[in-house]
Nucleic acid binder design. Sequence first.
DNA 1: ATGCATGAGGT
DNA 2: CCTCATGCATT
Length: 294
Amino acid sequence: MSNVAGLTGQLITNAQGQVIGTLPLLVNPASLAGAAAASALPAQGLQLQTVCPQLLLNSQGQIIATIGNSPTAAAPSAASVLPKATVPLTLTKTSTPVLKFTSLTSTGAIVCGDMPTVGQLVSKPQSAVNEEEAINLEEIREFAKNFKIRRLSLGLTQTQVGQALTATEGPAYSQSAICRFEKLDITPKSAQKLKPVLERWLAEAELWNQKGQQNLMEFVGGEPSKKRKRRTSFTPQAIEVLNTYFEKNSLPTGQEITEIAKELNYDREVVRVWFCNRRQTLKNTSKINLFQVR
DNA sequence: ATGCATGAGGT
DNA sequence: CCTCATGCATT
């Protein structure tokens, strides 16, 4: 397992430890933002934009176009890319301390009333977790970690990966999905489904990066798409009330939802969805992630 | 990074 | 109506 590849490139992180950029493996003189990245970086608020040799990005980090092997191929040095000298990098497999979480939620003490409580939502419905699952989870956790590192080493943002994934064949995923996968803010099931996709894509991306560059990352402006309802923004007061209700009962009846909506003066449907999302969020952030230090 | 929305599949 | 997987839009 852990077939990590040594990777170079330095990660730039902010105070929260979040990666906000990377230093290119090789400075690309041709890139516009490249110059900025080369300079010192004392400030913590600076927002660098690492540019992938093959891609032209706009200020939002979105792919505007790809520098293909077109005739007027500029930037002769762009092809340099990483001198496969990746060897020197420590690939300490720092195998994680194997966190066992066997009966993490063996709370069999829940007295079943009729309304599921928050505690019940979080706990396992039945049988304990078996070894197999635990192993799988660890594997995914490792991959997620690696994926992020390798993605950054390629100088790609979550958005770019999402666009590429959408542009190329195979399952398409958005920036949100990439983000959630990296954070494992999803169910184990989703993670297992995503892993192969990302694994495959990443391998290809690294290959393209290594060799010249194929403009397989084609993507023509997305279509208009339907009009989506504007996102409701609850007031802090409303959120407070909703949370209070949720703590009491996370699964209110239609009648109750109607009343709550009336009280807060919000669309009934909006309130219903709020509860749905609240329940879902609670679940997603309590499985794989539960034993993760965040 | 995350909040709300959507839609598919189930009861 | 619910859960789930996802994504658009916003913070």
